[in-house]
Structure formats: C-alpha cells, structure tokens
C-alpha cells in the first residue's frame, strides 16, 4: 500500500505531496516525544497536531506521511518545512476513523 492509495480514500486530501511512498503501518499519536521514539518507519502517522515540529519529527522518524485528522489545517510554517521532504495529507474524519480506513488498506 502507498500514500497514493491513501489519497484515493474519501475525505483525504494532499497538502504536501511530492512522491508516492510505501506505507506499512498506521500510527496514532499527539505527543512529539512519543512519536519520535515509537512511530514506525514507513508508517502513516495520524495526528491532530498542526505545527512545524510535526514535520521535524516525521522527517527524523522517517514516517511515510502525516495525516492530519478532524479537518484541521496545517500551520503555514509546517507546510513550508515539509515541501520536498515530508508528505502531508489531511482527513476530514476524526483520528480513529481515519486510522481505521487506512489500516483496512494494509
């Protein structure tokens, strides 16, 4: 399964999308330290955090993409930091529904 497959799901839209990447797991977390330590490499990280630090952690932890739930928007600084580096998607659904939908593809 890839980030491109996630994009085909209802309610998912791209914010920063440069390339198709393999997705092996789904990971849900809203604390940066926990995500930094435990986000599996190549996972789709579902969160409600919108700031640029999410991008730094996503890049260091090498997740496949970030999926921002609840229809929230990324901060401008996050979008800027992610360009060319980290795939950022948005979901109009809450965290659980978003993760369940992506998990069903794996």
């Amino acid at each position: 399964m890839t980030t491109g497959d996630i994009l085909k799901l209802d309610g998912i839209t791209p914010s920063v999308y440069d390339e198709d990447k393999d997705v092996e797991k789904v990971f849900c977390c809203d604390l940066l330290s926990v995500a930094m330590a435990r986000a599996p490499e190549g996972s789709a990280w579902v969160t409600v955090m919108t700031n640029a630090n999410v991008v730094a952690v996503a890049s260091l932890a090498e997740v496949a993409c970030v999926v921002l739930a609840e229809g929230f928007d990324y901060d401008e600084a996050a979008l800027k930091a992610a360009r060319g580096k980290v795939t950022l998607l948005r979901s109009s659904d809450p965290v659980y529904e978003t993760a369940a939908k992506i998990g069903a593809l794996i």
Partner: peptide
C-alpha cells in the same frame, strides 16, 4: 500545547 513536555526527553535519550 505544541506537543512537547510529555516528560520523555531524558528517558528517550537514555534508551536511544
């Protein structure tokens, strides 16, 4: 509020 302050900083450094 920014997602920090989980109290995992030093423990994560030690573990890693």
């Amino acid at each position: 509020d920014m997602g920090f302050g989980a109290g995992m900083g030093l423990p994560n450094i030690k573990k890693s």
